[in-house]
Amino acid sequence: MIITETSANGIVIVALEGRLDALSAPKLRGSPPVADPKTAVVLDLEKVDFMDSSGLGAIVGAAREKGDPACGIVLSCMNNKVRRTFETTNAQRLFHIFDDTSAAVDFAATRQIART
């Protein structure tokens, strides 16, 4: 899996590409902006073509460690396969899910301002 970090509007965007499974999940957990409890991250899942519960667990676990889980990790552009894994475990209830990364960034930015 390839992890690319960029930023926009003061928000870190972590874009993932490839398969998010037991093999690659630790890599995501180890990514500094994801692991930092104070950084709000937009996780761009557009190029994730497969995700299982290890990948899901990594995202959920990272959110748990954020100050505000629902806004600490904002998800964008997941495909139908990935969405189904979320729905199977009801994990979609924990996250704000956007179909567009720029909209997700706007949302995360307003939430950050609201909190400071």
């Binding site: 629902a70 139908n80 209830r93 996250f95 704000h96 899910i97 956007f98 179909d99 567009d100 909209a103």
Partner: peptide
């Protein structure tokens, strides 16, 4: 197509979550 939202989402947030659509 299908998408998820949070129970407390405002109309603006709902539109934002579906901006690409």
């Amino acid at each position: 197509s299908y998408a998820n939202m949070q129970t407390g989402d405002s109309v603006e947030t709902m539109l934002g979550k579906n901006r690409r659509f």
